[in-house]
Amino acid sequence: MKNFTLFIFLLISSVIVSADESLPLHICTVASRPKPGLQQLLLSAEKFGLKVEVLGMGLPYKKNGQKLSYMKMYLENIPDTDLVLFVDAYDVIFLANENVIKDKFYSFNSPFVISAETNCFPFQELASAYPESPTLFKYLNSGTYMGYAGYIKFLLNEFIIEEDKSDQGQLTKLFLRREHEITLDYYSELFMTLHGIRGNQIKLEKDPKLVHCLLTGSTPSIIHGNGLGKKLYQHIFNTLFGKQ
């Protein structure tokens, strides 16, 4: 009952404060080593006046499930009504400032928005359990997500985190239990994943720095070169920010 009450409170709060530009936005990632991809992430963040807190630097890294544990600890000191944005460390680029990111998040009218991708990973057998999507971006991708701190806390308390397992797999199962509460970014409005996407399905604009997703007509604020999208991610970074 306590969890249910918290959920209702936060869901109502998401509507009440849905246009509050004064809400703090906390951005974090998890990285154990300073790879080039992390430098590119931080450079793109700096270009748009964003500060990213890096969790886990220099510490042993098990598997991707550990990212959920870091997030759970990170949220302990953040007020429930603050906004929190998580991004993967080594293959993500920012293309918008804080106000644009907030406005896009608010437009979903949801307490939690997570990116969608074209591939059902790691549980291919769960593909048929997903709801229909209006675009090719149908399946949950855990590399970028945003929500109210209290609601993310609530979600992460819904299951026992397995650090040696896929974070995406664990969040996939959570989504399929709560698909009417968790929002997938089907149109790549806020987040765009690149696995399975070809170069002719996007259009780049250098000034201002924009990626136009020709599949959905959107200009996403955060680009993620997941899976086989690493080469396209690097091409986008090199074109918009210059080779480092």
Rank of each mutant, 00 (worst) to 15 (best):
F112N: 08
N3H: 14
P134T: 06
P122E: 00
E125N: 07
G37S: 08
L68I: 15
L232Y: 02
Y70G: 10
D80N: 02
T172K: 07
H235P: 06
I12A: 10
S32R: 09
L136S: 15
L140H: 00
V15P: 02
K153T: 15
I222V: 10
M73D: 12
A129F: 13
L38V: 13
M57R: 03
G229S: 04
F86R: 08
V211L: 07
E158Q: 13
L55V: 03
K47A: 12
L171G: 11
H224W: 07
I161G: 05
H26N: 15
L210Q: 14
V100D: 15
P36L: 12
E158R: 09
K231N: 06
A45N: 02
S18Q: 09
N157F: 03
F9G: 11
G227V: 08
K104G: 05
L174Q: 00
C120E: 03
T183V: 06
G229L: 01
E179S: 12
M192P: 06
E205N: 11
I182A: 08
Y148H: 04
K230A: 05
T219Q: 09
V87C: 11
K72L: 15
R33C: 11
S218D: 08
L228N: 13
R178V: 10
V92A: 03
A45E: 04
E158F: 00
L50N: 06
G143I: 08
C213Q: 07
H224M: 12
G217D: 03
P220Y: 07
S188K: 04
V84Y: 10
L171H: 05
Y139K: 00
L83T: 05
L38I: 12
F108P: 10
I236K: 07
G37R: 11
S110W: 08
K243F: 03
E163V: 00
F48H: 13
Y61I: 00
V211F: 01
Y90C: 05
Q244E: 06
T118E: 14
F154K: 09
L59R: 02
I8A: 15
S188A: 09
A127H: 11
F121H: 12
N97K: 01
F112I: 12
V87Q: 06
C213K: 11
I12C: 10
P79D: 02
V87S: 08
F105A: 01
P122A: 00
Q124D: 08
L156R: 07
K203N: 01
R177K: 09
F4S: 14
L83D: 14
E181W: 04
Q234I: 01
V15A: 01
I223H: 04
K51L: 04
L210W: 08
L43M: 12
K231I: 04
I160N: 12
K203V: 03
V100I: 14
T135R: 09
S32H: 13
I27M: 15
G227N: 01
C213T: 15
